[in-house]
Amino acid sequence: MSKKVAKTNAMRLLDTHSVPYREIVYDIDDGEIDGMSVCRKVGAEPAMFFKTLVAKSREKKIYVLVIPVLEHLDLKKAAKVIGEKHIDMVEVKELLGLTGYIRGGCSPIGMKKAYPTYYQQSLLNHEEIVVSGGRQGLLIGLAPADLLLMTQGKTADLIVR
């Protein structure tokens, strides 16, 4: 028994471009929305479940960085890849205004603006990866090539080693 899921900006954009994806709905009533808890709830392998992070340069230029959910972003490495001297994570209170999404529901697809987007290169090792669907309690599974195309994304090594 599955209930109808209200479309998010991410889903509408994928539908408009006829990009195949699958919806994965999970319960958030327990407050457990951290990566490991969500992986457990939906039965996803952590290596194929990616989180969306948003950073900014000192000049306030915004960047989207998408890495495996259990990994940690290396800000110095990411700044070098992007071509900036220094980047910092945006504050949670800035996220909605910049992206149209809230913490725990930030999708790399369908943000308010098309920001430069970089993915941990390991996404290419999977036939399908999972990202936020645009709100807490909703994930989207899709082919990495489709995700890269929809976001004009680039791949690089972005994580702490």
Rank of each mutant, 00 (worst) to 15 (best):
A156N: 03
I159C: 15
D30P: 01
R135L: 07
M1T: 12
K41S: 12
I159H: 10
F49V: 00
M36I: 13
M1L: 13
V131H: 03
A78C: 12
L139Y: 04
G31A: 04
I24C: 12
V92D: 14
L147I: 01
A47G: 12
A6K: 15
Q136T: 06
Y115A: 01
V42L: 03
G133A: 03
G43I: 01
G100I: 13
P144H: 07
L96G: 10
A10F: 07
K93Q: 13
H72C: 09
Y26F: 14
K51R: 10
I140T: 11
M36D: 12
S18G: 11
M11Y: 02
L14Y: 03
D146L: 00
E45K: 12
C106H: 03
S132M: 08
V54R: 05
Q136F: 01
L75K: 13
F50L: 01
D74T: 07
V66E: 07
E128Y: 14
V66T: 03
H86Y: 14
K7V: 12
Y119G: 09
L158W: 11
E127T: 13
N9M: 10
G104N: 01
A145R: 11
Y115Q: 01
F50W: 04
K7D: 10
A78L: 12
A114Y: 05
A143K: 14
I102V: 13
L149C: 03
L70H: 06
D34Q: 10
Y119W: 10
A6V: 14
I159W: 11
D146E: 04
E128V: 05
Y101G: 10
A55F: 04
I62T: 01
T151K: 07
I140A: 04
P144N: 07
P144S: 09
A156K: 04
F50C: 01
S107Q: 09
H86Q: 14
P46Q: 08
D146P: 00
I87P: 00
E23S: 15
S57E: 06
V92K: 15
E59W: 08
I140Q: 02
M36N: 11
G83Q: 02
R161W: 09
K80F: 12
E128P: 11
P20I: 09
R103L: 15
L147Y: 00
S122V: 08
Y63T: 05
V81F: 05
G97F: 08
E128M: 13
A44G: 07
R161D: 15
Y26I: 00
A114L: 14
V81D: 03
R135T: 09
V38M: 02
E127L: 09
V5E: 11
A79G: 06
Y118C: 06
T16I: 05
V131I: 13
N125C: 14
M36K: 14
L123S: 02
V130C: 01
T8R: 06
V130Q: 01
L96N: 11
K77C: 07
M48V: 15
K41W: 11
L139V: 04
L73Q: 05
M1D: 10
D30L: 06
G133H: 01
K80N: 08
K93I: 13
P144C: 08
R103F: 13
